[in-house]
């Protein structure tokens, strides 16, 4: 099975987000960049499929040079090859442009049975790129996969939906996006880390893919401005240490009479 895994390079989920000077981006100072957590599940599954049989895993990331560390992390976790599509400064947060670039890279590299991505890239939080890539590559997709089994040129995938679980069958090649619960990603081994440092990363530009980044940027979502959510504070905090039952009664009264929510 030949897989490619789309890796988004995002701020670590423990990061404190501050506004940058540009007004529509975060302040990147001090941010630790990581593989988007859902992409880790996708990568782990692709590597397990390879280990269970045979195959090859390519990680692809679109972005500036910091994605090289993301790709090396992917290699350290078991990927065999890494591809950087350079650029991405003007198409930030623009799911359509990102999907068009990634779909073009997937077509150019060719020969994949499976395209994996996370169900969501934490950061832009769009949850769009996987399904968009599928449509642009004319492939079926299953999003939010919790379990996947392969055989006879098909995948049978389980996904959580509102109100239950769906079992979906699709022919390969197919796009799958990973949900938390699919697996428990491994930590990179020391040997893997050492090897990944020396590995070659193939690079291609958006122009190499026959696309124009400026035109892509104009066609999709633009971030006009960024703000921090209004700070809360001054909540009414009751002491429930000595008489928990009295505090509970008072809380219920406040929720009913003051907040009017129960």
């Amino acid at each position: 099975m030949r897989s490619c895994v789309l890796l988004a390079c995002v701020p670590d989920t423990a990061s404190v987000i501050k506004l940058g000077a540009a007004g529509n981006r975060i302040d990147e100072a001090g941010i630790k960049w990581v593989i988007s957590p859902y992409d880790e599940f996708a990568l782990e599954e692709a590597v397990r499929i390879k280990e269970a049989g045979s195959g090859h895993v390519t990680v692809i990331s679109y972005g500036p040079d910091r994605v090289q560390a993301t790709l090396r992390d992917g290699l350290a976790r078991g990927a065999d090859a890494a591809v950087q599509v350079t650029g991405g400064e003007t198409t930030f947060g623009n799911a359509l442009a990102i999907a068009r670039v990634l779909a073009a890279a997937i077509r150019k590299l060719g020969g994949f049975d499976l395209v994996w991505a996370g169900v969501k890239g934490v950061g832009s939080d769009n949850s769009l790129v996987g399904a968009m890539v599928a449509e642009l590559c004319d492939l079926p997709h299953v999003s939010g996969v919790l379990k996947a089994e392969f055989g006879g040129g098909k995948v049978v995938a389980h996904r959580e939906v509102d109100g239950g679980m769906e079992v979906i069958e699709a022919p390969l090649p197919c796009v799958l996006t990973a949900q938390k619960g699919l697996n428990e990603p491994r930590y990179p081994s020391l040997k893997g880390i050492m090897a990944s440092k020396k590995a070659a990363i193939q690079t291609m530009s958006v122009a190499d893919l026959g696309l124009d980044e400026a035109a892509l940027a104009g066609a999709g979502c633009r971030w006009r401005s960024l703000a921090l959510p209004p700070a809360k504070g001054g909540g009414m905090i009751l002491n429930g240490e000595t008489d928990p039952a009295a505090a509970a009664r008072e809380l219920a009264r406040l929720l009913r009479e003051q907040a009017k929510v129960i």
């Binding site: 701020p11 987000i17 975060i26 979502c221 006009r224 401005s225 703000a227 921090l228 959510p229």
Partner: peptide, 18 residues
């Protein structure tokens, strides 16, 4: 307006020429 970074920030966005 959409929450980004899982609600740690709010982005005002438009759809460009879509």
């Amino acid at each position: 307006v959409r929450p980004v970074y899982s609600g740690k920030a709010l982005a005002t966005v438009d759809g460009g020429s879509s």
